[in-house]
Amino acid sequence: MQILSRAASERISIGSEITLCVIAVNGTSVRLGVEAPRDISVHRDEIYKRIRDRNTGRLASGELAKD
């Protein structure tokens, strides 16, 4: 993991297509803006895990149903 320090309005580039911008820092809360192509999904971690678990569950029950 790379740890970077940025102040409000500063940016971080990930490759040539993704940019993170620090919108605001309020105590322990940080607001980020994400610029990415539409074909790249951007989710908070807890939402991503929920989507992944739901999709994995569907695959598992589909595979069990075939047996």
Rank of each mutant, 00 (worst) to 15 (best):
K49R: 12
E17S: 14
R11C: 07
R31N: 05
S41V: 07
I23N: 02
S5R: 11
G33E: 08
R6V: 03
R44V: 09
I47F: 09
E10I: 05
T28H: 07
D67T: 14
D53C: 12
A65N: 15
D67E: 15
S61I: 11
R6T: 05
K49W: 10
N26W: 07
I14A: 09
N55F: 05
I12P: 02
R58L: 15
M1S: 13
T28K: 07
K66T: 10
D53P: 02
G27R: 01
L32A: 03
K66D: 12
K66C: 07
I40E: 04
D53G: 08
D53E: 14
R6D: 02
R50Y: 11
I14T: 02
S9C: 08
I51D: 12
T19L: 00
L4W: 08
I40H: 05
T56I: 13
E10C: 05
I12L: 15
T19F: 00
I51P: 02
R31E: 03
G15I: 01
I18E: 01
S41F: 07
I47S: 11
V34E: 03
M1L: 08
R31C: 02
V34R: 01
R6G: 00
I47D: 12
S29I: 03
T28S: 11
L64H: 10
R54C: 09
I14Y: 06
H43R: 13
E10Y: 03
E17N: 10
N55S: 13
Y48A: 15
G15V: 01
D45P: 02
S41W: 05
I18K: 00
I14H: 04
R58H: 10
Y48E: 05
A7P: 00
D45F: 11
E63D: 14
A36N: 01
K66S: 14
I47A: 14
E10P: 00
E35N: 06
H43C: 09
A24R: 07
C21S: 13
T28F: 09
